[in-house]
Amino acid sequence: MHQITLLHFLFVSSTLFCLGLFCVVARKNAIMVLMGIELILNSANINFVAFSRFGGFGYNGQIAALFVIILAAAESAIALAIVLNIYKMFNNVNVDEIDNMRE
């Protein structure tokens, strides 16, 4: 049971973070950017839970992860409302074509 160490979990979460970062930076569609943000939040959550288990912080890390999940839900609701408005105004959601602040 002890051959899986903290480093294994950290490796998974860093890989997830880098994939999410790439998704945020390089994809065109605004909804893909949101998916990248969800990947990044998940990787941060894995870190919280892993540190709370391997560092002996009890349940505090798990509660931090719980709060992150709640914030992610609020964030994605607001962000999707904004994306819907952008679609209404510009008729697409490609982040590289939306470059003026007012119509």
């Binding site: 979990f9 909804i31 959550n45 839970v49 798990q62 719980l66 999940i69 992610a72 839900a73």
Partner: peptide
């Protein structure tokens, strides 16, 4: 990692809520 509750919340909130929103 021993976080069963977080796993269930993850399934309910992410798969049931955020993913449907997306």
């Amino acid at each position: 990692l021993g976080a069963d509750f977080i796993a269930i919340v993850q399934l309910i909130v992410y798969v049931g809520g955020i993913l449907i929103l997306l």
